[in-house]
Nucleic acid binder design. Structure first.
Lengths: 342, 342
DNA sequence: TTGAAAGCGCTAACAG
DNA sequence: CTGTTAGCGCTTTCAA
C-alpha cells in the first residue's frame, strides 16, 4: 500500500510551507501570494497527482461540501418513491447544480429507526433538501441540527426552515376550473394521502374553490385518496367504472396517478377523453407520452430542483441571509385528455 | 455556538476512557468489555445526545461508509438520465440496501471536466457502483483509485473490476426469437448508441443470432440507433411510418424507447399491435401501464440494485475476496403489444 | 508574503 | 478489561 500523498508532500516538492499550499488550494483571497509561488505549487500538485482529502478538511474546517437530499418513501422501511418520475427529475437537477458548484449529493430515504438528524450530524452536512411532507416530530427533530434546511413541497410553517413550493391550492383551482369551463360538472379528485394541511389537501381546497365558484355542490364521494402511484389510479378507475352515476372528468394530483387511471379506465373499455376526461398534475415527461397525451398542471420540476440546490448552497456559503421562501409558477398545459362538453 | 459534544465528553460522563467509548461505539469484537460498562457508556451517549463525527472517523480509520453511484448522463455536462425509469428503480434499491447496512450513497453524474477518480479520492469512497458503459480512459483512470468498483451493465473486461450484468446477447436473442415465433419476419431493432462491445451491441448480436437461426436475412436498414429516450423512439416511429416496406415488429432495447415508439406510431394512426408489434426491454414499471401493455424482456432491476450494493459492501468490509461477477437472469414477460401473425 | 504549530474528533496500537 | 497516546491530513491563527 503506497502512502497517500498529502499536502505535506506537495509543500516539500514545491519548496514551500504547508500553509502556503493550503492557501493556494482554497484560493484564500485574504492571503496574497506571489504568482510565481502559486505556479510552482500548482505544478507540484499536478506532478504528484495530489487530491485533497475532504475528510481531513471537514474535520479541520467543519465544512463538508455535502448536501443531503431526503426523498419520501412509498412505505416506511422500504425503497423510495422512484416510481414517481417527479423525484428522478428533481434529483437530477439538484445533483447537476451541486456538482457544478463543487458539492456532492447524499441521497437518503427516511428510516423509521434512525432519525435523519443523526445522519445529518454524523456527516456534518452543509445543507439539506427535504422533499415532501412529514410528521411534526420529524421537523422538530431536524431543527436541532443547526443545519440549513430547505423544505420542498411542505407546508410546515416553522420559521426555521426555508421553503420552495408551488401554490397547490391555486393549482387545484385552475385544474378544476379548466374542467368546469369545458362543461364538466361531476369531477373526481384523485390524490395521495390527504394529510391535514398537506399538498394534496391544499389542492383539494382549490378543487372545492372552483366548484363553489361554479355553484357545483361538493360531493364527498368524488374524492378518492390512496397511495401516490399508478396502482391506486387503477384501483380508482375500477371503482369509478363500477359506479353508475359516473364522473365525466377526473383530476389527478400527480401524473403518475393519471397514468394509472387511464390504464384502468381503458382496461374497462372506456375511451379517453370521449367517455371520461383526465387531468394530471406535474407535467412530468410521461405526460406527453401517454395516449392520449395528458392535459396537466405544469410545474417546472427542473427549476424546482435547481432552485433548491442554489438556495441551500448560497445559504451554506453565507451568500444570502434570512429566511428564503419561493413560490414557483404553475400553468395549464393543454393536451388531448380532456373533452369539451360544450 | 455551543460546542459540539464529542467522544471525550461521553467518556467523562461515563467515567471511562475515550478508548473504551470508541470500542463500544464500534462494537469492536476484539475487546471484551463488561456489560455494565457498556450500559453506562450507552446511557451517557443517550444523555448527551452524542453523535459520532464521521469525518473524524474517516480521517483516523480511512473508512467512510460512503459508496458512490455513477449514473450516465443524457448529454455531457447535463443532467443525468433520470427520464429513464430504470435508473430510479436501480438507485432506489441501492440506497435501501446501503442504508440498512450503515452506508450512505453519494450520487453523481459524470463530468467531462472532472474525473470521477478525483471525487472518489477526495471523498475516500469505500466503494463505487458504476452504471453504464464509458470510454476506455474512464476505466483506466478509475483503476488507479484502489477502491473496489462494481460495474453494472458494462462490458469492460478489465480484471480489476467486479461486474453485474445480464446476458444482453441472450436477451436480444430471446426477444427476437419470440417475435419470429409469432410469425414476424421483418423486425426492427431500435437502440441507444451502438458502442462497440456495449450493451446495445450485444443485444444486436442476439437479434442477429435469432434472425440467422430462422434464416431471415439481416437488413441494415432495420436497425435504428440514437439516444436512449422516448424522443428518439418517436423519431423512429416517424421514419418507419414514412417508409413503404414497413416492419411488422419492433424490438426496442429499452422500455422507455418503446414508450416513445408507441406514441409516435399512434400519432401516425397506426394501431398496436394490429398494425405493428412492439417489444421492450427492462420491464420497468411503465411497461404495464402502457396501452397496450408492453411485452418485454424482464430483468430484475431491483435485484440488480440490491446485488450491486451488497457486493460492494461485502468487498469493502473484506467479507468476500476475489473478483465478483454475476449474471442476472432474463425472461420474457408477455403482455399485449405483440400480435401473432400465425 | 510565508512558515510553525496548535488543534479538529476519532481510531488503534500498546501498555497496564 | 481499560487507559494513554500518537497520529490521520488539513485549516488557521499568529509570528516572522
Amino acid at each position: 500500500m503506497k502512502k497517500r500523498i498529502g499536502i505535506k508532500d506537495v509543500a516539500k516538492e514545491a519548496g514551500v510551507s504547508i500553509a502556503t499550499v493550503s492557501y493556494i488550494i482554497n484560493k484564500n483571497p485574504k492571503e496574497s501570494i506571489s504568482q510565481e509561488t502559486i505556479d510552482r505549487v500548482n505544478e507540484a500538485i499536478k506532478k504528484l497527482n495530489y487530491v485533497p482529502n475532504l475528510s481531513a478538511r471537514s474535520l479541520a474546517s467543519n465544512k463538508t461540501n455535502l448536501i443531503g437530499v431526503v426523498i419520501p418513501q412509498t412505505e416506511p422501511g422500504k425503497k423510495f418513491m422512484f416510481n414517481n418520475p417527479f423525484y428522478g427529475e428533481f434529483l437530477s437537477s439538484v445533483e447537476y447544480v451541486a456538482r457544478t458548484k463543487g458539492y456532492h449529493v447524499l441521497i437518503s430515504g427516511t428510516d423509521a429507526n434512525q432519525s435523519y438528524l443523526e445522519v445529518a450530524k454524523k456527516r456534518s452536512l452543509d445543507g439539506i433538501i427535504i422533499v415532501g411532507m412529514y410528521d411534526e416530530d420529524f421537523y422538530e427533530d431536524l431543527k436541532k441540527s443547526q443545519i440549513p434546511i430547505v423544505l420542498v413541497d411542505s407546508y410546515c410553517k416553522d420559521h426555521y426552515f426555508h421553503s420552495i413550493q408551488i401554490n397547490d391550492r391555486y393549482g387545484g383551482y385552475i385544474a378544476t376550473k379548466y374542467l368546469i369551463e369545458k362543461g364538466h360538472r361531476k369531477i373526481a379528485y384523485i390524490t395521495g394521502m390527504l394529510k391535514k394541511g398537506g399538498v394534496n389537501d391544499h389542492r383539494l381546497l382549490g378543487y372545492i374553490d372552483a366548484l363553489k365558484e361554479a355553484n357545483i355542490p361538493f360531493q364527498d364521494e368524488c374524492v378518492y385518496s390512496g397511495n401516490v402511484g399508478y396502482e391506486y389510479g387503477i384501483e380508482v378507475a375500477d371503482l369509478i367504472y363500477k359506479r353508475g352515476n359516473r364522473e365525466t372528468a377526473i383530476f389527478c394530483s400527480a401524473d403518475i396517478m393519471a397514468m394509472g387511471v387511464m390504464k384502468g379506465l381503458k382496461n374497462r373499455g372506456l375511451r379517453i377523453p370521449q367517455d371520461i376526461s383526465i387531468m394530471g398534475f406535474d407535467d412530468s415527461y410521461i405526460s406527453k407520452l401517454l395516449d392520449p397525451a395528458l392535459t396537466t398542471v405544469k410545474q417546472d420540476i427542473n427549476l424546482k430542483g435547481c432552485t433548491a440546490a442554489n438556495i441551500i448552497i448560497d445559504i451554506a456559503e453565507n451568500r444570502i441571509k434570512g429566511k428564503q421562501d419561493v413560490i414557483l409558477p404553475l400553468e395549464i398545459v393543454e393536451r388531448e385528455s380532456v373533452e369539451s362538453l360544450i
